[in-house]
Write a protein that binds this DNA or RNA. Structure first.
Lengths: 139, 139
DNA sequence: TCCTACATTGGACAATGTCTAAGTCAAGAA
DNA sequence: TTCTTGACTTAGACATTGTCCAATGTAGGA
């Protein structure tokens, strides 16, 4: 984690208690929290941190490329700290938890040129959906 | 379109003016509207139609499998009437418009078994992102 | 230590979606 | 055709998620 903080400082980030806490929350577990969950966990360590700051910080981390924004359903976005490994997501349709997965081949190559309609295509996300073992056992 | 209405009636749908209008809006152009856009267009033909009804009807069409719900960014969901053809989406990162695209091969096969972690994987969505020609010209 | 530009705060606001109670109506029954 | 009834619609309150702003605080360089 200090890696991350060092990288950020190197890019001119001013290092505040709030930003440190947000970064620590993201780095802690390898889960994909929503902004509100990040706020809740950050509040445990720094009770006066505001929602706005969490949103700001997450937004900055995303635009710096340190964190990926994942919106799988129409609900809250989730934040994925695993930005430095190329990966995709496997989502449980019932409980919403997300796992990182790694694919064979490059999904970009599956889109033929004539199907690009003049777009400058720069990114592809693949999301698998299913029922996780835990939910599957419950039903 | 009467196809769609017939199918729905066959499944016990009560056919109301509101539902007819929503179905017509979706079927009209081959665009992917948000719920609010559907409401706006439906209102042109049936001014007193309410937001709640549009949301209800869209939800029903989705659960009947007649329409696909697409949530590409964290913003409003869009509704895709092209549910009977297997396809994926190409989204403009700037203006949010969506095109249907067709892929080479089956993206499901790109996910190796050991990467499925016991999930019963049933669905995969692939979303390409880029800048559309129109937005590209504007910048 | 002091400055100052940048960061944080709290609360208002916006966008999207859900829910409910009361009224309305489509379609089968008589 | 008219009646009846349960499904449908409505308006608006409410919930969730996210953005914005003016006032205040502070990290880090001079």
């Amino acid at each position: 984690m200090s890696d991350l903080l060092e990288r950020l400082r190197g890019r001119g980030w001013r290092l505040t208690a709030q930003r440190r806490v947000v970064a620590e929350v993201l780095d802690g577990d390898h889960v994909h929290y929503t902004a509100d969950e990040v706020h809740a966990r950050a509040s445990e360590r720094l009770p006066e941190i505001s929602r706005a700051t969490v949103y700001n910080t997450l937004g900055e981390l995303v635009s710096l490329g340190e964190v990926i924004e994942v919106s799988t359903d129409g609900r809250a976005k989730r934040y994925d700290p695993n930005a430095h490994h190329d990966h995709q997501h496997l989502v449980c349709a019932r409980c919403g938890t997300i796992r990182d997965v790694h694919l064979h081949g490059d999904p970009l190559s599956a889109l033929p040129m004539p199907e690009r309609y003049g777009f400058e295509v720069s990114e592809v996300t693949v999301t698998y959906r299913g029922i996780c073992p835990t939910c599957s056992a419950k039903s």
